[in-house]
Amino acid sequence: MEMVQIVGIGLIATLLILIVKEQKPVFAFLLAVFTGIYLFLFLIGKIDTVIRVLENLASRSGVPTIYLQTILKIIGIAYIAEFGAQIVRDAGQESIASKIEFAGKVLILAMAVPIISIIVETVLNLLPAGG
């Protein structure tokens, strides 16, 4: 039933945007943004259940919480960056959209820095000292 609602909202928004676009492209853009935000908020509840399942799985199997936190942060960054980039792309600003995506990628990689540093440190400690 929710799927029907989402498709219905999408179709109506598309139709309205097609009508408005000829006269006022700015309003068409605003309409697209609001539709996107609405759908995003509509689905956040569903993502919440998935995340709860993940948390449950992690806590039951003894995975350190810091792993899960990092993973969830990565998912969040990916979603927000993708959402923003698509909105900007809809407005026709391809270059800004790719910058947003780039920022998302950099932030995701920054999450990995502590892990990489720990692994590198460990491997260096594994090697025999001196030589």
């Binding site: 998935v50 990092t70 990916a78 990628k105 995701i108 990689l109 990995a112």
Partner: peptide, 15 residues
């Protein structure tokens, strides 16, 4: 869960 394939390589690295 990832929204698009653009981030797949980076996320795979961290995972």
């Amino acid at each position: 869960l990832l929204p698009s394939n653009a981030y797949q390589r980076y996320v795979r690295l961290v995972l």
